[in-house]
Design a protein around this nucleic acid. Sequence first.
RNA 1: GCCCCGGUAGCCCAACGGCAGAGGCAGCGGCUUCAAACUCCGUACGGUGUGGGUUCGAAUCCCACCCGGGGCACCA
Length: 959
Amino acid sequence: MAPPPDQSGDDTPRFRYNSALAARIETKWQDIWEERGTFEAPNPAGPLAAPDEVAGRRKLFVLDMFPYPSGAGLHVGHPLGYIGTDVYARYKRMMGFNVLHALGYDSFGLPAEQHAITTGVHPRVNTESNVANMRRQLRRLGLGHDARRSVSTTDEPFYRWTQWIFLQVFNSWYDADARRARPIAELVVEFESGRRPTPDARAWSDLTTAERNDIVDAHRLAYLSEAPVNWCPGLGTILANEEVTADGRSDIGNYPVFKKNMRQWMMRITAYADRLLDDLDRLDWPEPIKLMQRNWIGRSEGARVDFASPAGAITVFTTRPDTLFGATFMVLAPEHPLVASLTTADRRNAVEAHRARAAATKDLDRTAEGREKTGEFTGSYAVNPLTGTEIPVWIADYVLMGYGTGAIMAVPCGDQRDFEFARQFGLPIPAIQRPPVAWFDAHSIPTPVDDRVDTAQWPGAFVGDGVYINSSREGLSLDGLDSVEEGKRVVNAWLESHRLGHATINYKLRDWLFSRQRYWGEPFPIVYDEDGRPVALPDSMLPVLLPELEDFKPQALDPDDDVTDPIPPLARAAEWRDVTLDLGDGPRRYRREINVMPQWAGSCWYELRYLDPTNTDHFVDPEVERYWMGPTDGGDGRTGHTGGVDLYVGGVEHAVLHLLYARFWHKVLFDLGHVSSSEPFHRLFNQGYIQAFAYRDPRGQPVPAADVEERDGDYWYDGERVAREYGKMGKSLKNIVTPDEMYDEFGADTFRLYEMSMGPLEASRPWNTRDVVGMQRFLQRVWRNLVDEDTGTLRVADTPTPEELRRLLHRSIDGVRNDMENLRFNTAIAKLIELNNALTQEVTRSGSTPAEVAGSLVQMLSPLCPHLADELWAMLGHSDSVTYEPFPQPDPSLLVDDSIEYPVQINGKVRARVVVPADADQATVQSIALADEKVVAALAGANPKKVIVVVGRMVNLVI
RNA sequence: GCCCCGGUAGCCCAACGGCAGAGGCAGCGGCUUCAAACUCCGUACGGUGUGGGUUCGAAUCCCACCCGGGGCACCA
């Protein structure tokens, strides 16, 4: 490394705050913090207990979304949220909080495995080197993390507990009456005692062991299911619905995905649908995220109704049972199991053709614009239970097998899709509601004079409140009612009393597919006995370690091969797979589960492990959990405060999956009494993204963004004009800027400050390397105000602060505190710059910085640029880090001025300014304003019609 | 198609319904220099996407539309 500054011809002052000095200061303090364990947060109990340090401090748990340790390393966009949480956490430490802030790694996952497949290097080796690199990059950023708590999901002591939680889920069932999960043993007790009837009402003691096991297994929150799954030969694995894009391809890699029936682990998240929905109201989350979760859960209230048909009852789900009188045909999904028996001989060819077509175009053309309704008549008729009339049964691909019952009653006058279908195939569209006059007016249709409403002129279905017509039968009439709510109630009651249907709630949310045909994931703590029944391993046999493999490939398959069945890599570890174990009834042969858990598993509970990372007796000590995450109102978490992380920061891309799965697991743990919080993340904040410009040459090839020049509004590279676009940073766009480059060029403090100053944390913004220098100049000016650039000695004097500067200082303290509390770091930085600019005037005038200003400025800067602040703090004579110094407090008496300048508006335009004593009342302000010569001139003798005086703000005269 | 979020100076962004400008970049002018770079000092050119409305007063509230970003997408 080259020796410091004094190169010939360079007359830069020796102690100028430049990148070289910043690097020395920063690495020095990073070492000191590490040595002293500055950011280690004490626990009230367990292995990290330090009760004395906990006492008397409020706690704060700040959390960043769990990163995947990518092999590509970080770019400048990645740390945005980490810097934000670090600034907030540091600020809160200075406010006296015991702050827990840590970062671990979500290190299982597909990329490491695919890397292993191509290189032959074990995923653990690759993963650990990626983690090491990411740790290095983040350490250089000066994040105040408690290093003791940095766990990785791939650590055996970590995934031991992931497996333990799986067993908790497996060994539980959902008691719908109690609205909570309970241990499976309690279910057995209920069956044994007869308190709960068995499905076929036989006595528990009359059932065979296998029958009992079947019943119990069918209640578990983790269960095996033979279900259509998304098989992706290109990845060699099946995927969750959420990992498949709308056009039927894999989220990762964009390979084709096929439906296949397989026996898979499922998690009964649907049991929690209502609680996941209801508890959103008690969370401090951005509304758009709550909305996305509500949409995903997709609760809709309606009814199930049975229609008699030659093939037996066809059950439909409808949200509009009140429109049952208008159901003039039925539509089944092409895959519906009754289609074959409903189809008559003469319709068979047409129906089969449609089914084949639907299967082939599945999910693909469904997104096409202007899609036309297609379908076929099955030849059979069902009976409308209200009208008793026979209505034709059709199949059509606009009805999805995966939602509701896969069959609908079609009410063409009241549902737009049914309307279009009826128009397409010439089916009748009788009206059962008379829309309001406004509806007819809006569509320029003459309003019918009586109940003879003719839908022939309607442009579409009518949805909403309208007077019911043609809706009566013996013992039931809606005619004359005009409320949908009322109509639903009446029909539901009738259906239930006639046993033809019942009110019900339907959800879009599906159970969670929990098996993956991969190597690099948590093995299930499950073995199968000789009957193929899953058996939970006891606690004492955890962890189930991943076996070593020579070859990590799931299976080399053609991405378009939808015939071959998936074979997970663990199937090849024969001596691992087939074991003899004593599970209580003597040594027996068992076969291990060869699927592994999905990557979501670890991130479903990692925040709990941060709390007590080294505990070998509990996944988290209950007292420790209660301390960091318990409901702040001291309640039970069921009502009032939910408990959970105090601040969770991450990108909006995890709005649904991660946040929903983690909430689900947390609620199971809550129900079983393992945690006191009923939600994992009480407050959620979505940070924006840092994006970047990219440039393409005339052939469409990206060119290195760093070498593009701007001239006269155009962009040039290598003598050629290039086109600019805006998007994510990425290798393929050649627009990556790394934190390492920023450390070298400016230093970590400048980099941190720039990221925080670019805009509010929640906003996305473009990266601009050339703008970074502004923050470096700011820190240079701060440094120069406190330190002599030539000698390196302090320029701080114990002199009184001039009154005006003092007032500004206290206004700044007040404003900065407020901004920090609200995560408004960009405006906090602006206030600090403003203060420092004023300080510069004072230093220019007097030659030194008043000690009061120096101290407060350094303290206020420290959350944002902690290295520089600690260096200056030490130079100011303190031996401890500034980390735990109390944040400056404003003197309230200095926040108010003696006099206020009022703008005087005439008809809303500012015409004059008057200076008025701050304590002047309304009348005084008014008389001073009216006496002002400019005002007198503007009024020209006229009397204002109205005078508005807002004390402390302004005066407005209306003439 | 539906639902969110956002449009303020050349750019990134501030502004409890009350003086449109806190801060940064770039630009321009100046100091310094043999000259330049760096540093430093100074400097606001726009009236808030468009059109209406409410109000004494609108960037801010309401309605419609336009543009950009994101989510959902035949969900019965």
